[in-house]
Design a protein around this nucleic acid. Structure first.
Length: 295
DNA sequence: TGCAGTGTTGCTTC
DNA sequence: CGAAGCAACACTGC
């Protein structure tokens, strides 16, 4: 398998959040370590960040789009975006002389350990680590009351009860352009990236380049239903695993065998045996079946 | 060996 | 105003 990468989209982030709730809810943060200050965007210095965060309890953990929010005691909230390659890990590490090494054997010794750049030491002696190969991940500390403003541009939450067809169609129709691009637009629907947009459009039998204004009501309906189906199926499977994605405890996600088109260029379509094709859209790859998904 | 490809977001440019 | 392009960064595959 080439180019092993973790690309957290909604199902992977949701899986992480559910795991985090089981493991670290109610824990107090006792110390923070980092060797890459740029990751912490707010407050400006690591010293300030440590000062404001140490001693606070993790009271609530939730997700908005691909963001993870840790609500802390006394009105603070930690906002984390994993971007392309961020991983959260739970375990124990030895921190010495500006570096660290794993204390335990098992999944923690795998390669993702190499890229740990931020560690939270908890009051049970365990740690929450952020590993990030490409160092794009972002961590910000906000006042809880500022969060709404910070997250206001994010679009619909596709797994919520309020995600109904009329709203979905209305939001998509406000935009112009190719349907794949609009599905990935975080201000329209929050949480869909390159993998799941391809899978959703295959399920709905819609060409990724189809223009929004050319979609019929039936086609909107198919995309809406596919969005719900694919995302909930992926959450159930605990996310994808084509990359080196691991859950907090180091297990693989189970979405891989369910993946129909993404990174399957040249393989047979599971519905009609036609070869899966790859085309470029806004600098990235779109995978689709040229027979099932026609313009 | 060097360079295109990998994906998310935000900023700059036109 | 919107879109397109690029930078942030590191590694893999050809």
């Amino acid at each position: 398998m080439r180019n092993k990468r973790f690309m957290p989209e909604l199902p992977e982030v949701e899986t992480t959040v559910r795991d985090l709730r089981k493991i670290i809810l109610g824990r107090k943060i006792e110390d923070v370590w980092s060797d890459f200050k740029k990751m912490i965007k707010r407050p400006k210095t690591l010293g300030q960040f440590k000062k404001e965060i140490i001693g606070r309890k993790i009271q609530k953990i939730w997700r908005r789009g691909k963001n993870i929010i840790f609500e802390l005691s006394q009105g603070k909230a930690l906002l984390l975006h994993q971007k392309l390659t961020g991983h959260l890990l739970y375990g124990t590490w030895d921190i010495k002389h500006g570096t660290w090494k794993p204390k335990e054997k098992g999944p923690l010794e795998e390669k993702i350990n190499t890229y740990i750049h931020l560690l939270f030491v908890l009051d049970n002696g365990k740690m929450l680590a952020l590993s990030d190969l490409r160092k794009f991940a972002k961590v910000e500390l906000w006042d809880k009351k500022e969060l709404g403003e910070e997250l206001k541009d994010l679009g619909l939450e596709p797994l919520e009860k309020s995600f109904i067809f009329q709203k979905f169609k209305g939001c998509l129709k406000e935009k112009r352009g190719k349907v794949k691009q609009v599905l990935m637009d975080q201000t329209v629907i929050a949480g869909i990236g390159n993998i799941y947009s391809d899978e959703i459009l295959f399920e709905a039998k819609i060409h990724p380049f189809k223009e929004i204004e050319k979609l019929s009501d039936k086609e909107f309906k198919r995309i809406y239903q596919a969005t719900r189906k694919i995302l909930s199926k992926a959450v159930e499977a605990k996310g994808e695993s084509i990359s080196d994605y691991r859950t907090l405890s180091g297990e693989k996600g189970g979405f891989d065998p369910l993946r129909k088109v993404y990174r399957r260029e040249g393989e047979k379509c599971s519905r009609c045996d036609t070869n899966i094709k790859r085309i470029k859209l806004a600098g990235r790859s779109a995978y689709f079946c040229p027979k099932c998904q026609q313009l």
